[in-house]
C-alpha cells in the first residue's frame, strides 16, 4: 500500500486534469500542488472552473483525463480525511430540517449503513455548532436562518468530520461582515492546527490578508504558489483580462498598500 503513494508530502497533487461539459473544456490540463498546512485560495474570473476544480478533486465532476492524489493517495481511499463545504446555493434551504440535523449529516459517512444518529452524534454536532457560534440556533428551521448563519451551519457540518484537508466553495459569498470574519478565524484555527484549507474565493481585495497560498485559474493554471509571489499585477491581468475596472481598483489599492 505505502509503495503506491504518489507525492505523499503534498496535501493535494493534481496532474494533467482536464474536465469538460459537452465540447467546451472547463478545465484544461491543470497541474498544481498544495503543500500541507496552508490556507490556499483558488481565484479566477467567472467561468474559470474554480468550483469544477474542487468538484473534480472530490469525484463529483468526472474528469476526461488526469489524476488527483491527496496525501499521496487517491481521493476514494482517504475520503474520510476530506471535508467539503459546497456552495450555499447548491441546496434547497426550505428542506424540513433543523440546523443541528444538518450538522449531524457530516457524520453520516462515519456512522455507516442502517444506523440512526444518536445522542453521541447530536452532542458532537452541538460542539461543532458552538465552534461556529451557532449553538443558540440548533433547533431552528434552516429556512429561517440568514445567509451567513446558513453558511456557518455548512461549515460546522464539515468541521464535525475532523478532516485533515478542507475544501470550501465560496464560503464568503453573500455573507455579512461578522460572519466573514468568523469564518476566516475558524479557517485560520484549522490551518494553525496543521490542517490544509482550500477555498474558492471571489474577492481579490481580501486574498492577501486571508490566505498564504494561492492558485490563479482561468480554465488553465495562470499561477500558483505563496501569495506574496503570485499576487502580481501581471498574473491577475493574465487571468482577468477584460475585467479592467475590477482590476484597476484592486491594483490601485495594491500599489497604495506597498508605497
Amino acid at each position: 500500500m505505502s509503495t503506491d503513494l504518489h507525492e505523499p508530502d503534498l496535501a493535494l497533487h493534481v496532474e494533467d486534469l482536464t474536465v469538460s461539459y459537452h465540447a467546451k473544456p472547463v478545465l484544461w490540463d491543470i497541474d498544481f500542488d498544495i503543500p500541507p498546512g496552508v490556507m490556499a485560495a483558488i481565484v479566477g474570473p467567472n467561468g474559470a472552473g474554480k468550483s469544477t476544480l474542487i468538484k473534480s478533486v472530490l469525484g463529483l465532476a468526472p474528469p476526461i483525463a488526469g489524476h488527483v492524489t491527496l496525501f499521496g493517495r487517491p481521493y476514494k481511499a482517504i475520503r474520510k480525511r476530506v471535508g467539503y463545504v459546497p456552495q450555499r446555493s447548491s441546496v434547497d434551504w426550505d428542506f424540513p430540517t433543523t440546523a443541528l440535523d444538518v450538522v449531524t449529516m457530516g457524520l453520516y459517512g462515519q456512522l455507516g449503513w442502517c444506523r440512526w444518529p444518536g445522542r453521541r452524534e447530536r452532542a458532537r454536532a452541538m460542539d461543532a455548532l458552538e465552534q461556529v457560534g451557532m449553538q443558540a440556533f440548533a433547533q431552528r428551521q434552516i429556512s429561517q436562518l440568514s445567509g451567513g448563519q446558513q453558511q456557518r451551519v455548512f461549515l460546522a457540518r464539515a468541521l464535525i468530520q475532523n478532516a485533515d484537508i478542507y475544501f470550501l466553495d465560496e464560503p464568503m459569498a453573500g455573507v455579512d461582515a461578522p460572519t466573514e470574519r468568523a469564518i476566516v478565524n475558524i479557517l485560520r484555527t484549522l490551518r494553525d492546527a496543521g490542517k490544509t484549507v482550500i477555498v474558492v474565493h471571489h474577492d481579490l481585495q481580501t486574498v492577501r490578508s486571508y490566505f498564504d497560498w494561492m492558485l490563479i485559474l482561468n480554465v488553465r493554471v495562470i499561477a500558483q504558489g505563496p501569495v506574496e509571489e503570485v499576487y502580481t499585477a501581471e498574473n491577475l491581468k493574465r487571468a482577468y483580462g477584460g475585467q479592467i475596472a475590477l482590476l484597476d481598483s484592486v491594483l490601485a489599492s495594491d500599489t497604495g498598500a506597498k508605497s
Binding site: 453520516y108 459517512g109 444506523r115 440512526w116
Partner: peptide, 18 residues
C-alpha cells in the same frame, strides 16, 4: 438518513461515501 441526505444535498452525500 441516506435517503434524507440524498434528497437534501446529493453532492455532499457523495463525499460522505454514499
Amino acid at each position: 438518513k441516506e435517503f434524507k441526505l440524498v434528497c437534501f444535498d446529493p453532492g455532499f452525500a457523495s463525499t460522505q461515501g454514499l
